[in-house]
Design a protein around this nucleic acid. Sequence first.
DNA 1: GCCAACGTTGGC
DNA 2: GCCAACGTTGGC
Length: 136
Amino acid sequence: MTMQYWLVKSEPEAYAWSDLLGDRKTDWTGVRNYQARIHLNAMRKGDRVLFYESVTTKAVVGVAEVTKTAFPDKTADEPGWVAVELKPIAPLSRPVTLTQIKAEPALAGIPLLRQSRLSVMPLEPAAFKRIVALGG
DNA sequence: GCCAACGTTGGC
DNA sequence: GCCAACGTTGGC
């Protein structure tokens, strides 16, 4: 399968991009939403993942990579929830803010804008590349 | 199966 | 701090 593109959200107070840089890799645990879980299960090794910091930062701040496909989330009380492993590839030179994303006609349809509460979402290759370009 | 109540997320 | 959006829960 060709490479797929994703975006994950995190409140930086809970887990920031800087934490991922410090950890070198992390288990992306804590997802408790069925739609987000479908996306986690669809991730493949090598897929690219934009890291969006919500609430305080409100910007895409880095690019990560899927290093392990879905496995049981040890932090879950009930079976069925899954995590993946992510590692950082590179920060964006300039964070791409939510304001910038909203201002881009080519990005008008992305789930980040349409489904504000979804924490794991797919991105079309063009949308992913556009955001990375804005951050370069 | 419907829907009101409630809890959480996340932008402003 | 407020509130809109929206997912979940539980009574009927």
